[in-house]
Design a protein around this nucleic acid. Sequence first.
RNA 1: GGAGAGGUGGCCGAGUGGUCGAAGGCACUCCCCUGCUAAGGGAGCAUUCGGGGAUAACCUGAAUCGAGGGUUCGAAUCCCUCCUUCUCCGCCA
Length: 431
Amino acid sequence: MLDIQILRSDLDNVAARLATRGFVLDTARFIELETARKDIQMRTQELQAKRNSSSKLIGQAKSRGEDTTAIMAEVALVGEGLKAIEIQLVQLQNELQSMLEGLPNMPHESVPVGKSEADNLEVRKVGAIPEFDFVVKDHVELGEKLGGLDFETAAKISGARFSVLKGGLARMHRALAQFMLDTHSDCHGYTEVYVPYMVNAASMRGTGQLPKFEEDLFRVPRQMGEEGEQNFYLIPTAEVPVTNMVRDEIIPLEDLPLKYVAHTPCFRSEAGSAGRDTRGLIRQHQFEKVELVQMVYPDESYAALAQLLGHAETILQQLGLSYRVVKLCTGDIGFSSATTYDIEVWLPAQNTYREISSCSNFEAFQARRLQARFRNAAGKPELLHTLNGSGLAVGRTLVAILENNQLADGSVKIPEVLQCYMGGLKILSAS
RNA sequence: GGAGAGGUGGCCGAGUGGUCGAAGGCACUCCCCUGCUAAGGGAGCAUUCGGGGAUAACCUGAAUCGAGGGUUCGAAUCCCUCCUUCUCCGCCA
């Protein structure tokens, strides 16, 4: 959520910056709502002040044993007027609030202006692209040949876009998550956390998935009390539960930065991407991810983003995978993000780089919704900056290893750093 | 699932209809005192949103005592619904 003060004081500039990401801010509507809000709010508060002071007088008069019927009648009249105008005020504030919640974050000045992913900026390429002297197989073929990847059974028990992993593949999948968790907590200073996979609506709202992106989520209806219904939502990323840990909190300055790593499943309905990546593990309703989350002092958030990106890259380097880092342009960054770097891993069978991590600085955008603050040197609460990034998406990492480490006979070399997680095994073969 | 007790400011903790945004304590900030031990005295110290002011200091209004609704001229205090925490029992991984 953007700071409404900025909208009030610098509306045209905000509109211009949002326009770079293809968002049209209805400035006329904002001004209209804001003007009405100001008027109604002032009138409401005037009446409330009158009621308060009169009620106070009644209290004083009664304690002296005086007659209060006249003044009470007068205040009752004020109360009537108040009821009506308070309803108006609440309506206006709700409209303003939902308009505000619908606005995406403003891109950082350093973000390249562009319309689509075609305009993203390649920052660096790391690692040589592997060459093969045989025709490469994709991960689906490799996995099925190895007997460890089974989409038909997954379709039977759940449906499309689910998978069953078996044997060595299942174990490598687990090994990857362990390796990532251990690396980030032992070497990069993150505290490992275990968190709920279902969260309430307030949490989804806090990190910006709601109200705008409900269609991408899996909702779990839940009967509450007599008639009330209160939904759970399956998390689309660990970002949601982990970042929400600081919702409505004031963190002591000396505790910053907070750095958390969590391994969770992620659930996405992918409503908008029917027909894309229907083959294989690339795009699933359920996948696993090791997520890095930081809450930091505002001045340090860009340094923290660079670090966090490096932490994610370390994993790819240690696995021996080739990748590139891309800075997303204004037209391609996510709703809540001010700056995003994607890490894309090389997939031989697709002959291209594919996203395996996304690292973002949200600045105060999430913190404002979350009321996630710290106490600054002057002792005043101030909004934190929040960041997160995948470190990494486990399923896609598995895909990358299968495809990049394949041998001519369809067996797959296990990266050295994973071998200790796999009982010393060096190679996956059909056996 | 059953029974009971709670949810108040950064923390602890008073407060059962009226000058309470809220006693007291702790922590913190500033000043004074004291040459020295986790000593004493004084002052300040919630958040959010408005209005004024230089988008300062500051002045001023409103809202907020788990959430939402209700009663009332007036609610932290009374009523209703919900959420949540703790204790005991049951059950279970």
